[in-house]
């Protein structure tokens, strides 16, 4: 249920397109979701499904033009972000919404001291003077677990390792204590041990600072580690949302099944092959009018190709867009729920 007092971000029917020479790319085609205060929402899906565009649209970071928000609303803390001017948006970015990106190797300015990169936001939003900002920067570096922050604050990004750079990115994003942190594949470019450290750090900081997190990822392991709720995105639409347990143990959409089945598991007794999802996602120049997953779905019916399925409520927080939910649809065994019980 959507509790109005706890909702921090509400995205409604968001549509984002890019106008290219080849035509209009409909990257996001009507996305609706919300984030509560202090919780972690994971948006999962394969490459090119519109996860990053969705998150960057919230910050209005997509290049406009060619990108444009066609319709929909993004309500953050009671304010409509799509209606804000560039100047007003600047005071939201960094101060109320922080963002970290996928590749820490390229996300820091190589010719500017790390400390200064943290200080910039503080000076702009919290009107600190240089000295105060530097103290705060050292404090932030300490908070994200960088040893000898007094020394590190005057170093350049190339003197930091990959994991440390991502920590520094988190320090930048959280410096002004934003209410929402958007993490766009924050661990994809890191090796596995560092991934775990960064996720631990994000969880710790979330508890300390009570920040809500939108986590964009295609790694279900990361999702299981940190998310409260999950939205599964496919070809520019959210096909299923629910709590972590609902998505992992009682998924309803065949695409979610496919995603879960393609993850290797440690607890199976006999060696099983991973099950890939055959085929490729649809072309977003001319997305299908029906369910976008129909072409790859083994349970696809005639209606699936013709009409996009309505939202069906499975439980309190669990919604799915799938014709299999319809009362006239044949009963299909849920392969994932099956497997978990077995």
């Amino acid at each position: 249920m959507v509790d109005k007092n706890r909702v921090l971000l509400e995205v409604n029917n968001l549509k984002v397109s890019f106008d290219t020479y080849a035509g209009e790319v409909q990257a996001v085609r009507g996305v609706t979701f919300h984030v509560n205060k202090g919780e972690t929402l994971a948006i999962v899906g394969e490459s090119g499904c519109g996860k990053s565009v969705t998150s960057q649209s919230i910050m209005k970071l997509i290049p406009m033009p060619p990108g444009r928000i066609k319709e929909g609303s993004i309500k953050f803390d009671g304010r409509e972000l799509t209606k804000l001017t560039d100047k007003q948006m600047e005071s939201v970015r960094g101060s109320e919404i922080g963002m970290i990106f996928q590749d820490p190797m390229t996300s820091l300015n190589p010719t500017m001291k790390v400390g200064k990169q943290i200080m910039e936001g503080l000076i702009k939003h919290q009107k600190l003077n240089k000295k105060e900002a530097k103290e705060k920067a050292i404090e932030m570096l300490k908070l994200v677990g960088i040893p000898t922050p007094e020394k590190r604050v005057d170093q350049y990004p190339h003197e930091f390792s990959g994991g440390m750079r991502q920590r520094a990115m988190i320090a930048i994003a959280l410096a002004c204590n934003p209410k929402l942190l958007i993490a766009d594949e924050p661990t994809t470019a890191l090796d596995v041990t560092i991934q775990a450290q960064i996720l631990d750090l994000m969880r710790d900081l979330q508890e300390k600072l009570d920040t809500a997190i939108i986590l964009i990822t295609h790694d279900l392991g990361v999702v299981a580690d940190i998310a409260n709720r999950v939205a599964v995105m496919y070809a520019g639409v959210i096909v299923e949302t629910g709590t972590l347990d609902e998505i992992f143990y009682n998924p309803q959409h065949p695409y979610t099944w496919g995603l879960l089945q393609s993850v290797p598991r440690l607890d199976t007794k006999n060696k099983e092959r991973l099950v890939p999802i055959e085929g490729t996602p649809p072309d977003l120049f001319s997305p299908p009018k029906g369910c976008p997953f129909a072409a790859r779905c083994e349970h696809a019916m005639r209606i699936c190709k013709e009409e996009f399925p309505e939202k069906t409520q499975v439980s309190d927080n669990h919604y799915v867009h799938c014709w299999l939910q319809h009362e006239m649809a044949p009963k299909v065994e849920n392969p994932v729920a099956e497997r978990r019980e077995g």
Partner: peptide, 24 residues
């Protein structure tokens, strides 16, 4: 990417150009 980071920090366009773009 780091220009996107600078933008995500809320810096104004002139500040980004002067501090981040020109030097690089």
């Amino acid at each position: 990417d780091y220009i996107k980071t600078a933008k995500a920090k809320g810096l104004s366009k002139p500040a980004i150009v002067v501090k981040h773009v020109i030097r690089n």
